[in-house]
Amino acid sequence: MSEQRAFQPDPQYLVQVRGLKEYFPISTGFAQVTMLKAVDDVSFDIKKGETLGLVGESGCGKTTVGRTMLHLYKPTAGEIWFGGKKVEKGPVMNEFRKKAQLVFQDPYSSLNPRMTVGDIVAEPIDVHKLCANKKERSERIQELLSMVGLSSEQATRYAHEFSGGQRQRIGIARALASKPEFIVCDEPVSALDVSIQAQVLNMLEDLQHKLGLSYLFIAHDLSVVKHISDRIAVMYLGHMVELASSLELHHHPLHPYTISLLSAIPVPDPDKAKKQKRIVLNGDIPSPLHAPSGCSFHTRCSRCTEICKQVTPEFKEVAPQHFAACHHI
Protein backbone atom coordinates (compact mmCIF):
# COMPACT_ATOMS: atom_id res chain seq x y z
CA MET A 1 0.00 0.00 0.00
CA SER A 2 2.69 2.44 -0.92
CA GLU A 3 1.05 3.92 -4.01
CA GLN A 4 0.46 7.18 -2.20
CA ARG A 5 0.76 9.46 -5.21
CA ALA A 6 -1.34 7.44 -7.60
CA PHE A 7 -4.04 6.58 -5.11
CA GLN A 8 -7.44 6.06 -6.69
CA PRO A 9 -10.40 6.02 -4.30
CA ASP A 10 -12.45 2.84 -4.38
CA PRO A 11 -16.18 3.68 -4.55
CA GLN A 12 -17.18 0.72 -2.36
CA TYR A 13 -15.47 2.33 0.62
CA LEU A 14 -16.75 5.36 2.49
CA VAL A 15 -13.54 6.11 4.35
CA GLN A 16 -10.06 5.26 3.13
CA VAL A 17 -6.97 6.03 5.14
CA ARG A 18 -3.55 5.76 3.55
CA GLY A 19 -0.18 5.96 5.30
CA LEU A 20 -1.51 7.92 8.26
CA LYS A 21 1.24 9.19 10.57
CA GLU A 22 0.96 11.31 13.66
CA TYR A 23 4.14 12.34 15.46
CA PHE A 24 4.07 14.46 18.59
CA PRO A 25 7.17 16.48 19.47
CA ILE A 26 8.14 15.75 23.08
CA SER A 27 10.67 17.84 24.91
CA THR A 28 13.23 15.42 26.35
CA GLY A 29 15.72 17.85 27.80
CA PHE A 30 17.21 21.28 27.22
CA ALA A 31 16.60 22.18 23.57
CA GLN A 32 16.03 18.51 22.82
CA VAL A 33 12.95 17.32 21.05
CA THR A 34 12.15 13.68 20.35
CA MET A 35 9.35 12.63 18.06
CA LEU A 36 6.78 10.39 19.70
CA LYS A 37 5.44 8.24 16.91
CA ALA A 38 1.89 7.76 18.16
CA VAL A 39 0.66 6.46 14.82
CA ASP A 40 3.16 5.24 12.27
CA ASP A 41 2.01 4.44 8.75
CA VAL A 42 -1.49 3.08 9.24
CA SER A 43 -3.79 2.31 6.30
CA PHE A 44 -7.30 0.91 6.30
CA ASP A 45 -10.72 1.24 4.65
CA ILE A 46 -14.26 1.31 6.00
CA LYS A 47 -17.28 0.42 3.87
CA LYS A 48 -20.61 2.16 4.09
CA GLY A 49 -22.64 0.72 6.95
CA GLU A 50 -19.69 -1.24 8.23
CA THR A 51 -18.15 -1.30 11.70
CA LEU A 52 -14.39 -1.53 11.92
CA GLY A 53 -13.18 -2.39 15.41
CA LEU A 54 -9.84 -1.04 16.54
CA VAL A 55 -8.24 -2.74 19.53
CA GLY A 56 -4.99 -2.44 21.37
CA GLU A 57 -3.56 -1.68 24.75
CA SER A 58 -3.20 1.78 26.22
CA GLY A 59 -0.61 3.86 24.41
CA CYS A 60 -0.85 1.89 21.16
CA GLY A 61 -2.26 4.88 19.31
CA LYS A 62 -5.83 3.76 18.72
CA THR A 63 -7.39 6.97 20.04
CA THR A 64 -4.87 9.02 18.07
CA VAL A 65 -5.89 7.18 14.89
CA GLY A 66 -9.51 8.14 15.53
CA ARG A 67 -8.75 11.76 16.26
CA THR A 68 -6.23 12.23 13.48
CA MET A 69 -8.69 10.70 11.01
CA LEU A 70 -11.20 13.39 11.94
CA HIS A 71 -8.52 16.06 11.57
CA LEU A 72 -8.77 16.92 15.24
CA TYR A 73 -5.00 16.56 15.12
CA LYS A 74 -3.24 17.62 11.97
CA PRO A 75 -1.81 14.45 10.40
CA THR A 76 1.98 14.46 10.13
CA ALA A 77 1.63 12.52 6.90
CA GLY A 78 -0.95 10.45 5.09
CA GLU A 79 -4.25 10.94 3.38
CA ILE A 80 -7.85 10.50 4.38
CA TRP A 81 -10.36 9.95 1.61
CA PHE A 82 -14.02 10.36 2.43
CA GLY A 83 -16.75 9.46 -0.06
CA GLY A 84 -14.28 9.52 -2.95
CA LYS A 85 -12.84 12.94 -2.08
CA LYS A 86 -9.56 13.69 -0.41
CA VAL A 87 -10.10 15.50 2.86
CA GLU A 88 -8.14 18.76 2.80
CA LYS A 89 -8.63 22.42 3.59
CA GLY A 90 -11.60 24.03 1.87
CA PRO A 91 -15.21 23.01 1.15
CA VAL A 92 -14.42 19.29 1.41
CA MET A 93 -13.23 19.80 4.97
CA ASN A 94 -16.42 21.67 5.91
CA GLU A 95 -18.54 18.86 4.53
CA PHE A 96 -16.33 16.29 6.25
CA ARG A 97 -16.73 18.04 9.61
CA LYS A 98 -20.48 17.55 9.29
CA LYS A 99 -20.40 14.01 8.01
CA ALA A 100 -17.84 12.61 10.44
CA GLN A 101 -18.45 12.78 14.18
CA LEU A 102 -16.95 11.50 17.41
CA VAL A 103 -18.38 9.89 20.53
CA PHE A 104 -16.03 10.26 23.48
CA GLN A 105 -15.00 7.74 26.08
CA ASP A 106 -15.71 9.68 29.24
CA PRO A 107 -19.36 10.75 29.43
CA TYR A 108 -18.52 12.92 32.44
CA SER A 109 -15.85 15.21 31.04
CA SER A 110 -17.16 15.40 27.48
CA LEU A 111 -20.39 17.25 28.34
CA ASN A 112 -20.27 20.90 29.33
CA PRO A 113 -21.74 21.17 32.85
CA ARG A 114 -23.00 24.72 32.21
CA MET A 115 -25.08 23.86 29.16
CA THR A 116 -28.49 22.28 29.09
CA VAL A 117 -28.78 18.92 27.38
CA GLY A 118 -30.75 20.57 24.57
CA ASP A 119 -27.96 23.06 23.91
CA ILE A 120 -25.31 20.35 24.05
CA VAL A 121 -27.18 18.25 21.51
CA ALA A 122 -27.89 21.27 19.31
CA GLU A 123 -24.31 22.53 19.25
CA PRO A 124 -23.42 20.90 15.92
CA ILE A 125 -26.69 22.27 14.51
CA ASP A 126 -25.74 25.78 15.64
CA VAL A 127 -22.17 25.51 14.42
CA HIS A 128 -23.14 24.31 10.97
CA LYS A 129 -26.34 26.41 10.85
CA LEU A 130 -28.46 23.41 9.98
CA CYS A 131 -31.78 24.75 11.25
CA ALA A 132 -33.52 27.83 9.89
CA ASN A 133 -35.42 28.86 12.99
CA LYS A 134 -35.94 28.12 16.67
CA LYS A 135 -38.95 25.91 16.15
CA GLU A 136 -37.12 23.69 13.72
CA ARG A 137 -34.18 23.53 16.10
CA SER A 138 -36.24 22.43 19.08
CA GLU A 139 -38.06 19.85 16.97
CA ARG A 140 -34.73 18.47 15.86
CA ILE A 141 -33.51 18.31 19.49
CA GLN A 142 -36.61 16.33 20.43
CA GLU A 143 -36.14 14.00 17.51
CA LEU A 144 -32.51 13.40 18.46
CA LEU A 145 -33.30 12.78 22.11
CA SER A 146 -36.02 10.28 21.25
CA MET A 147 -33.60 8.52 18.89
CA VAL A 148 -31.32 7.75 21.82
CA GLY A 149 -34.15 6.85 24.19
CA LEU A 150 -34.36 10.06 26.21
CA SER A 151 -37.53 12.08 26.70
CA SER A 152 -38.01 15.58 25.33
CA GLU A 153 -38.53 17.12 28.81
CA GLN A 154 -34.96 16.19 29.60
CA ALA A 155 -33.69 18.79 27.10
CA THR A 156 -33.84 21.54 29.70
CA ARG A 157 -31.87 19.64 32.32
CA TYR A 158 -28.14 19.69 32.93
CA ALA A 159 -25.69 16.85 32.40
CA HIS A 160 -25.01 16.29 36.11
CA GLU A 161 -28.61 15.17 36.60
CA PHE A 162 -28.02 12.10 34.44
CA SER A 163 -26.39 8.73 35.08
CA GLY A 164 -23.36 7.55 33.14
CA GLY A 165 -25.39 5.56 30.63
CA GLN A 166 -27.77 8.44 29.98
CA ARG A 167 -24.85 10.84 29.55
CA GLN A 168 -23.36 8.57 26.95
CA ARG A 169 -26.73 8.69 25.16
CA ILE A 170 -26.53 12.49 25.19
CA GLY A 171 -23.04 12.27 23.69
CA ILE A 172 -24.37 10.00 20.95
CA ALA A 173 -27.32 12.32 20.27
CA ARG A 174 -24.86 15.19 19.84
CA ALA A 175 -22.82 13.14 17.40
CA LEU A 176 -25.99 12.42 15.38
CA ALA A 177 -27.11 16.04 15.24
CA SER A 178 -25.32 16.95 12.02
CA LYS A 179 -26.64 13.83 10.24
CA PRO A 180 -23.25 12.15 9.93
CA GLU A 181 -22.39 9.13 7.81
CA PHE A 182 -19.37 8.13 9.81
CA ILE A 183 -18.86 8.10 13.59
CA VAL A 184 -15.69 7.37 15.49
CA CYS A 185 -16.75 5.71 18.75
CA ASP A 186 -13.80 6.12 21.09
CA GLU A 187 -14.31 3.55 23.87
CA PRO A 188 -17.99 4.47 24.18
CA VAL A 189 -18.86 1.81 26.75
CA SER A 190 -15.69 1.30 28.76
CA ALA A 191 -16.70 3.85 31.40
CA LEU A 192 -20.12 2.22 31.84
CA ASP A 193 -21.31 -0.54 34.11
CA VAL A 194 -21.78 -3.99 32.62
CA SER A 195 -25.57 -3.86 32.80
CA ILE A 196 -25.62 -0.50 30.98
CA GLN A 197 -23.04 -1.47 28.35
CA ALA A 198 -25.45 -3.80 26.60
CA GLN A 199 -28.10 -1.05 26.35
CA VAL A 200 -25.69 1.37 24.69
CA LEU A 201 -24.24 -1.29 22.37
CA ASN A 202 -27.73 -2.29 21.22
CA MET A 203 -28.61 1.33 20.62
CA LEU A 204 -25.48 1.90 18.53
CA GLU A 205 -26.39 -1.12 16.41
CA ASP A 206 -29.98 0.02 15.96
CA LEU A 207 -28.88 3.49 14.90
CA GLN A 208 -26.44 1.98 12.45
CA HIS A 209 -29.18 -0.03 10.75
CA LYS A 210 -31.64 2.85 10.78
CA LEU A 211 -29.31 5.59 9.56
CA GLY A 212 -26.82 3.53 7.56
CA LEU A 213 -23.88 4.71 9.65
CA SER A 214 -20.29 3.50 9.45
CA TYR A 215 -18.40 3.17 12.70
CA LEU A 216 -14.80 3.09 13.71
CA PHE A 217 -15.24 1.39 17.07
CA ILE A 218 -12.23 1.87 19.32
CA ALA A 219 -12.08 -0.29 22.43
CA HIS A 220 -9.78 -2.42 24.49
CA ASP A 221 -12.43 -4.99 25.42
CA LEU A 222 -12.12 -7.69 22.77
CA SER A 223 -15.44 -9.36 23.49
CA VAL A 224 -17.30 -6.09 22.99
CA VAL A 225 -15.38 -5.37 19.79
CA LYS A 226 -16.04 -8.85 18.47
CA HIS A 227 -19.72 -8.46 19.11
CA ILE A 228 -20.16 -5.16 17.32
CA SER A 229 -17.56 -5.23 14.54
CA ASP A 230 -17.59 -6.66 11.04
CA ARG A 231 -13.83 -6.39 10.80
CA ILE A 232 -11.21 -5.86 13.48
CA ALA A 233 -7.84 -4.14 13.35
CA VAL A 234 -5.25 -4.74 16.06
CA MET A 235 -2.69 -2.07 16.89
CA TYR A 236 0.56 -2.24 18.80
CA LEU A 237 2.84 0.74 19.46
CA GLY A 238 1.52 2.88 16.64
CA HIS A 239 1.55 0.11 14.05
CA MET A 240 -1.30 -1.96 12.77
CA VAL A 241 -0.30 -5.59 13.28
CA GLU A 242 -3.36 -7.45 12.04
CA LEU A 243 -6.63 -6.77 10.24
CA ALA A 244 -9.27 -9.36 9.41
CA SER A 245 -12.97 -10.06 9.64
CA SER A 246 -14.16 -10.42 13.20
CA LEU A 247 -14.72 -14.18 13.00
CA GLU A 248 -11.53 -14.86 11.08
CA LEU A 249 -9.50 -12.91 13.63
CA HIS A 250 -10.94 -14.89 16.52
CA HIS A 251 -10.64 -18.31 14.91
CA HIS A 252 -7.38 -17.88 13.02
CA PRO A 253 -5.36 -15.12 14.60
CA LEU A 254 -1.96 -15.01 12.89
CA HIS A 255 0.08 -12.33 14.59
CA PRO A 256 1.66 -13.51 17.87
CA TYR A 257 0.43 -10.36 19.60
CA THR A 258 -3.19 -11.00 18.57
CA ILE A 259 -2.87 -14.59 19.72
CA SER A 260 -1.66 -13.64 23.17
CA LEU A 261 -4.18 -10.79 23.43
CA LEU A 262 -7.04 -13.20 22.71
CA SER A 263 -5.75 -15.78 25.15
CA ALA A 264 -5.37 -13.16 27.90
CA ILE A 265 -9.09 -12.33 28.07
CA PRO A 266 -10.64 -13.80 31.21
CA VAL A 267 -13.62 -15.84 30.00
CA PRO A 268 -16.69 -15.59 32.26
CA ASP A 269 -17.07 -19.36 32.48
CA PRO A 270 -15.25 -21.31 35.23
CA ASP A 271 -14.95 -24.58 33.29
CA LYS A 272 -13.63 -22.97 30.15
CA ALA A 273 -11.32 -20.78 32.23
CA LYS A 274 -9.69 -23.91 33.65
CA LYS A 275 -9.13 -25.38 30.22
CA GLN A 276 -8.04 -22.11 28.65
CA LYS A 277 -4.40 -22.12 27.63
CA ARG A 278 -3.17 -18.71 28.49
CA ILE A 279 -0.14 -17.21 26.84
CA VAL A 280 1.16 -14.65 29.29
CA LEU A 281 3.41 -12.11 27.64
CA ASN A 282 6.58 -11.17 29.43
CA GLY A 283 7.48 -7.63 30.18
CA ASP A 284 5.72 -4.35 29.70
CA ILE A 285 4.70 -2.39 26.65
CA PRO A 286 7.78 -0.39 25.62
CA SER A 287 7.48 3.37 25.67
CA PRO A 288 6.52 4.72 22.24
CA LEU A 289 9.28 7.32 22.74
CA HIS A 290 11.89 4.58 22.60
CA ALA A 291 10.12 2.12 20.33
CA PRO A 292 12.15 -1.03 19.63
CA SER A 293 13.91 -1.33 16.30
CA GLY A 294 12.55 -3.59 13.59
CA CYS A 295 9.25 -5.19 14.58
CA SER A 296 8.02 -3.19 17.58
CA PHE A 297 6.68 -6.35 19.20
CA HIS A 298 9.98 -8.26 19.14
CA THR A 299 10.86 -7.52 22.79
CA ARG A 300 7.87 -9.53 24.01
CA CYS A 301 7.47 -12.02 21.18
CA SER A 302 8.14 -15.74 21.58
CA ARG A 303 8.89 -16.19 17.88
CA CYS A 304 11.46 -13.40 17.76
CA THR A 305 14.51 -14.01 15.57
CA GLU A 306 17.37 -11.85 14.28
CA ILE A 307 15.39 -10.41 11.37
CA CYS A 308 12.65 -9.13 13.71
CA LYS A 309 15.15 -6.96 15.55
CA GLN A 310 16.33 -5.25 12.37
CA VAL A 311 13.63 -5.13 9.73
CA THR A 312 10.17 -3.69 10.21
CA PRO A 313 7.75 -6.29 8.83
CA GLU A 314 5.48 -5.22 6.00
CA PHE A 315 1.74 -5.08 6.58
CA LYS A 316 0.58 -7.45 3.84
CA GLU A 317 -2.31 -9.66 2.83
CA VAL A 318 -1.46 -13.14 4.10
CA ALA A 319 -4.83 -14.73 3.37
CA PRO A 320 -7.82 -13.32 1.46
CA GLN A 321 -8.91 -10.17 3.31
CA HIS A 322 -6.59 -11.01 6.19
CA PHE A 323 -3.68 -8.63 6.70
CA ALA A 324 -0.81 -9.01 9.15
CA ALA A 325 2.63 -7.61 9.81
CA CYS A 326 4.98 -10.39 10.91
CA HIS A 327 8.09 -12.01 9.46
CA HIS A 328 7.02 -15.47 10.57
CA ILE A 329 3.67 -15.94 8.88
Binding site: S163, D193, S195, Q197, A198, N202, E205, S223, V224, H227
Partner: peptide, 24 residues
Amino acid sequence: GLLRSIPSIDSDNKDRLIPIAGTP
Protein backbone atom coordinates in the same frame (compact mmCIF):
# COMPACT_ATOMS: atom_id res chain seq x y z
CA GLY B 1 -29.37 -10.62 33.57
CA LEU B 2 -25.71 -9.83 34.08
CA LEU B 3 -24.58 -13.10 32.55
CA ARG B 4 -26.95 -12.62 29.60
CA SER B 5 -25.88 -9.05 28.91
CA ILE B 6 -22.15 -9.57 28.43
CA PRO B 7 -21.06 -10.32 24.87
CA SER B 8 -19.35 -13.67 24.70
CA ILE B 9 -15.98 -13.99 23.05
CA ASP B 10 -16.72 -17.61 22.17
CA SER B 11 -20.05 -17.37 20.44
CA ASP B 12 -20.09 -16.53 16.77
CA ASN B 13 -23.65 -15.37 16.43
CA LYS B 14 -24.19 -11.66 16.42
CA ASP B 15 -27.56 -11.72 18.10
CA ARG B 16 -28.64 -8.66 19.94
CA LEU B 17 -27.46 -8.45 23.50
CA ILE B 18 -30.12 -8.75 26.15
CA PRO B 19 -29.57 -5.76 28.40
CA ILE B 20 -30.87 -5.22 31.89
CA ALA B 21 -33.46 -2.48 31.52
CA GLY B 22 -33.46 0.70 33.52
CA THR B 23 -30.74 2.54 35.39
CA PRO B 24 -28.89 1.71 38.61
